[in-house]
Amino acid sequence: MGDDILLDTKIFTFLKVAEFKNYTKAATSLNLTQPAVTQHIRKLEEYYNCKLIDIVGKSINLTEEGEALYNYANFQVANEKQLIGRLKSIETPLKVGATLSIADYYLPSYLNLYMGNSNELFSLTVKNTKSIIEMLMNNELYCAFIEGIFDKSLFNFYEFCNTKFTPVARKGHPLDGKESDLSEFHNYPLILREVGSGTREIFENYLYQNNDSILSFNKIFEISSFGIIKKVLKNSDAISFMYEEVAKREVELGELSYLSLKGYSIERPLYFIYPCNSLMKERNEEFYRNITL
């Protein structure tokens, strides 16, 4: 007998024969011919220098040595699966998604802390809410930080933080410093994110609940970048709606202002989510725990 013990295909053949107590069924399960299965068992018996299987008529039973090998092999298979899983967790980054507002204005401080305290690798994909949800459902992402509306029956979720969703315009805008009716907002160009973004969906929902729509506004512009949106706001009379943190720096610098809208108050949770049926549940949960320490 050799000094090295390798978990090879002959071991798996032996386990299948022990499971089915039938060479033909074992062969079918392994997509092998029956003579190949017989040869695998013979090679193992030669290697271990003992009889592993007793065949009496149509009855197939393990010998005492066969029982010992069966128990040992099952432990080895289980250990190898754990090892493979561990190696995959080390080598394969956790695939994380984030919507634009969260990725640019909320997540960096959490990620900086996480990267200093954890060895878990991750890759971050930034897209709008609709795209992130689709990627999660297609298993292209394992978990995500999102805003906006999603089907809570399909995902496990945690409220990542709460933030105000507010109208923003340039400092000195005609509506700056006064409490305005929604109808007064209609007189100015409106800048929105693209269809599928969480912020747009929240704003359109608000308008719908107030028997209004974006069609009431003077002009509508779609811009997918908050950086560009804020630059346009600084140099025009356009208005936009965004999370408070997104415009915080420009407001503190006196370049932009939060506008006041009568009867308007929206505070929204930002979520960490992953699919309910995810095989990555433990890694996702650990990632969330570590990132919110």
Rank of each mutant, 00 (worst) to 15 (best):
A103C: 04
E222D: 11
K164G: 02
E45A: 04
L52P: 06
C143E: 12
L190H: 15
E285P: 10
G177C: 05
V77S: 00
R200P: 00
N22S: 14
I53C: 14
G177I: 15
Y70F: 11
A169V: 05
Y105W: 03
N31V: 14
G85A: 02
Y23F: 15
F241I: 10
F145Q: 10
A144E: 11
N284R: 14
Y206H: 06
N156L: 08
N156I: 15
R200N: 00
Q209K: 05
I41Q: 11
T63L: 13
E286H: 10
T125F: 01
A247I: 03
F12A: 05
D54L: 14
A36Y: 01
Y106F: 10
E222A: 13
M242G: 00
F226T: 13
N22D: 15
K152F: 07
K25Q: 12
E64F: 12
S257D: 07
Y271G: 03
Q39Y: 15
L30T: 00
I90S: 12
L52F: 05
R289M: 12
S89Q: 11
Y158L: 04
I5A: 01
L136D: 03
K81N: 03
F160K: 09
K152I: 06
I214M: 15
L113C: 06
R86Y: 12
Q76V: 11
K16P: 00
N211F: 03
Q82D: 01
D212F: 05
A144F: 15
K178S: 08
L141K: 04
K81I: 03
A238W: 09
K262H: 05
P269L: 14
G85F: 02
D212M: 10
F145M: 07
R42L: 09
L94N: 04
N71W: 01
L44H: 06
N187T: 13
L69W: 09
S153Q: 07
N128C: 07
H40F: 05
Y206S: 10
I53L: 08
E134V: 12
P108M: 01
F165D: 01
R289Y: 06
L44K: 07
R268G: 09
N117P: 15
T24V: 09
K219F: 14
M242V: 08
N79Y: 00
G85I: 00
T99G: 15
S213L: 13
E194C: 11
S59N: 05
T9R: 15
E80D: 04
D104L: 01
S180I: 06
L107Y: 07
I133A: 10
K234V: 14
N74I: 13
Q34S: 08
M1Q: 06
E67A: 11
G148F: 07
E140L: 13
T13W: 04
Y142G: 11
E80C: 10
V56I: 09
L141T: 00
K58Q: 03
R268V: 14
R42S: 13
L270W: 02
M115P: 08
Y288P: 02
E204A: 10
E282P: 01
V77Y: 01
N61R: 07
D8N: 07
S225Y: 12
E282N: 05
